[in-house]
Amino acid sequence: MSVATRADFHRPAAVGEAVRLLAEHPEAVPVAGGTDLMVAVNYRHARPEAMLDLTGLAELRDWTDEGDAVRIGSGVPYARITAELATVLPALAAAARTVGSPQIRNRGTLGGNLATASPAGDGHPPLLATGATVEIASTSGTRTVPIGEFYLGPKRSALGPGELITAVTVPKAAGPQQFLKVGTRNAMVIAVCSFALALDPDARRLGTGIGSAGPVPLTAPDAEALDLPWSSPGRFDDALAAEFGRRVAAAARPIDDVRGTADYRRHALAVCAARALRRVWTTAHDRSPR
């Protein structure tokens, strides 16, 4: 007697077919690298009735240079982001480097990070700091969502039923960027907290992103608004860096959990943010004294 319970497995060859299948089979869960979904299945936190395999969609698996920005297909694995985009998207590439192990980075995708929308996802802070946009397809067409409007709650996002993330467009770095991730071991660890910072010296603008310290990935608008000595960068000092750190920590809404305490997360964010600002400021003004 065959009693094996089986899940339907759809393998579209094009995005059009994928969104049509998704419309016809709303129970189908898209799967690309499977590094989130299959863990959930193995732990029996998820038992999808059907899966929609995205690995056959060649159009999701590459990135393109769009001039001021890079459009990254949702199926591009972290390993390629690290290897190929470190110069133009340094914060995102640094974040991709911290995801899991080499095997996970070969499989896991930025699209999956967004679809799971875990507050601990490593890709989110750099996307927030750089003002990325998420491209979403469905049978009714394509829409773009600014990253700041994408995250709605823990593991909840603006992605609706029948919708598929197809790409993320990330503005190229206009100055130094930093990504720092705190974990309780030196590799292969879920973030206790993380922080991304993008400096645009010409626009005199800071972009921030906070991970693993709130119900959703956050920005720190007060910190971005800090009055910095843009005209005389030599006047930048540790007190300013510390104030920036305090403002970032104040923007966080962390909880106590098994990975760390809320107090520690705030403390660590303050330290990381201050270090990040010192690093980008020094790099920007050492390279191009003005």
Binding site: A94, K181, V182, N186, A187, R278
Partner: peptide, 16 residues
């Protein structure tokens, strides 16, 4: 950074 505390987390370049 892989030789420093925090590893690829890029938390320190020697600071602290």
């Amino acid at each position: 950074i892989v030789e420093l505390p925090g590893g690829t987390g890029n938390t320190t370049h020697g600071e602290g």
